[in-house]
Computed example of a mutant assay.
Amino acid sequence: MRLPNRIVFAALAGLGAIGLGACASTAQTAPAPATRSIENGPAADYPIVLGDPFTIDGVTYTPVDTLNYDQVGYVTGDEPGAMGVTGAHRTLPLPSYVEVTALDTGRTILVRLERRGPMTNDRLLALSSAALTQLRVGEGAPIRMRRVNPPEEHRADLRAGREAPLRMDTPTGLLEVLKRRLPARGSAPLGDPRQTQVSGVVPTPGTIATLDPDEEAAVTAAAPDDVNEQPAAPAPEVLRPQLPMAVDGGPARAPVMVPTDPDGRFAIQLGAFAIRGNADRLAREVQGYVETSGSLALVRVGPFATRGQAEQALAKLRERGYSDALIRLID
């Protein structure tokens, strides 16, 4: 039997009122989660949401688009019903992607942040049951969490509810260094504070003007064979692979031993920096070069004539600890 239009409209209006009431109730207890879409296209990662500041047990958290987020802390289980290899974080944009390392094993996975949380100050990150299973950790396990920009195919895996491929395991020597930075409770930053100040898509000129691009940042990564002899270093520090030292005390040039071709169409990109001095230092360390893209300085190695040569160089760079390195096609 066909219902009169006025009855249908009244029913729809009632459902809409119930939905709005539920949203209002949720907003009072926790920030809104990111929209999750089963449609497996890049558009599902937008819009990126920050949201308003909120308070947990007297501590106020302000969501911010921090480019080089890198911290150690402890993990907890996410809310029941959290789907896929996903997580909850208090301040990073939703959605965004992070690598999470279990400090007891070095096992590292890729996680899509979709919700606000954890709603306790003692935990750095909340993971869904699927993420905890892939990482092979339980409640309160020590972790490292750093924001990354993964390839689109890995993003697509997570958006579809699948596991992304495991990342490279963190070496034992670096794990020991990370554990020394781990606080008894809560979390601690690892990254260069000069970079974490430059947040958002376009860094503000005022922020950049206050940073000294020639100021050296400390390095904490120690070689595995002497890690037990290294005293704990004060924060803040930058965690980077330790490079051989040249006679003059600076880092030795470390070519990837794969032939380059000035007319090649493939390059390895190691990072994008808001501070040109940081990009120049990394480029010298890996015998790479710097290209400018808008307000960012891109560090690349190459170019290479074939994708096969680029993949050889990528493998060598990732062995050195540059796990974010990616192959880029040169225009």
Score class of each variant (00 low, 15 high):
M1F: 09
R2A: 12
R6Q: 06
A11D: 03
A11S: 00
A13G: 09
G14D: 03
G14Q: 05
G16F: 07
G16T: 13
A17W: 03
G19W: 08
L20A: 14
G21N: 14
C23P: 01
Q28D: 05
T29H: 14
A30K: 13
A30L: 02
P33R: 08
A34L: 01
I38H: 09
E39G: 11
P42W: 07
Y46N: 09
I48M: 02
D52I: 02
F54C: 06
T55L: 00
G58D: 01
T60G: 00
T62C: 06
D65Y: 08
L67I: 14
N68R: 10
N68D: 14
Y69A: 13
Q71R: 12
V75S: 04
G77C: 02
D78F: 07
G84V: 03
T86D: 01
L94C: 03
L94N: 01
P95Q: 07
V98L: 08
T101K: 03
A102R: 02
R107H: 14
R107K: 15
I109L: 10
V111C: 11
R112V: 10
R116Q: 10
G117A: 15
N121F: 04
A126L: 09
L127P: 10
S129K: 13
A130Y: 03
L132Y: 00
T133E: 11
L135Q: 04
I143F: 12
V148Y: 00
N149F: 06
N149D: 09
P150Y: 02
E153W: 00
E153T: 05
H154A: 09
L158P: 04
L158E: 04
G161L: 04
R162D: 11
E163C: 13
A164F: 06
A164Q: 08
R167T: 11
D169N: 15
P171S: 08
G173A: 06
L174V: 10
L175K: 01
E176L: 10
V177N: 13
A184R: 12
A188I: 00
P189K: 03
G191A: 15
P193V: 08
T196E: 13
Q197P: 05
P203K: 11
P205W: 05
P205R: 11
T210A: 10
T210D: 06
L211G: 05
D214S: 12
E215Q: 14
E216Q: 12
A217W: 06
V219G: 11
P224M: 00
D225F: 14
L239G: 09
L239M: 11
R240T: 15
P241M: 09
P244N: 08
D248P: 03
G249E: 05
P251Q: 09
P251Y: 07
P251T: 10
A252M: 08
V256H: 07
M257N: 15
T260V: 05
P262Q: 11
P262W: 01
F266W: 15
F266H: 14
A267D: 02
F273K: 00
A274D: 10
A274T: 06
R276Y: 01
D280F: 02
D280S: 07
R281Y: 04
L282R: 02
E285R: 12
Q287N: 12
G288F: 01
E291P: 00
S293I: 07
L298G: 01
L298N: 01
V299A: 05
R300I: 02
V301T: 14
A305V: 01
Q309G: 09
A310T: 01
L314M: 06
E319H: 12
Y322G: 04
S323Q: 13
A325D: 08
I327A: 02
L329R: 13
